[in-house]
């Protein structure tokens, strides 16, 4: 057996586990910074699935999607952290439950 072989299903399984961990963090945490971190974990898990597929078929497309995911993550984090700064200035807390009104 060739030692270089990694089953595609195991790569996808790891991606699924990481994605679920991120989703769980997103659901149970109420601190805005931790919610943004959970989003990063989920995007990263999706990127892992794409790179696994890219390696499986020996095509470049999966890694190009990884580049686009990195771009999206960077833009999302920049906007999200700007919102975190405003929330902290206006409400003096990072608890998202405090910010559930759409007023003020």
């Amino acid at each position: 057996m060739n030692p270089l072989i990694i089953p595609l299903s195991h790569v996808l399984m790891l991606a699924a586990l990481l994605f679920t961990a991120g989703l769980l963090g997103l659901l149970i945490r109420r601190n805005v910074i931790f919610i943004l971190m959970s989003l990063e974990v989920m995007l990263n898990a999706a990127a892992l699935a794409f790179v696994g597929a890219s390696a499986h078929w020996g095509q470049t497309d999966g890694q190009i999607i990884l580049l686009l995911i990195l771009t999206i993550a960077a833009a999302e984090v920049a906007v999200g952290l700007g919102l975190v700064l405003q929330i902290q200035r206006r409400f003096k807390t990072l608890d998202l439950d405090v910010v559930s009104r759409m007023r003020g």
Binding site: L17, T20, L24, Q59
Partner: peptide, 25 residues
């Protein structure tokens, strides 16, 4: 809820039987 989602994902992945021989891109 997350556990149920994970089980569903694993069931759909478990049907894959292919192996990857990484080709360096």
């Amino acid at each position: 809820l997350c556990l149920i989602l994970l089980i569903e994902l694993s069931l759909s992945i478990a049907s894959l039987k292919s192996e990857t021989n990484p080709i360096v891109v």
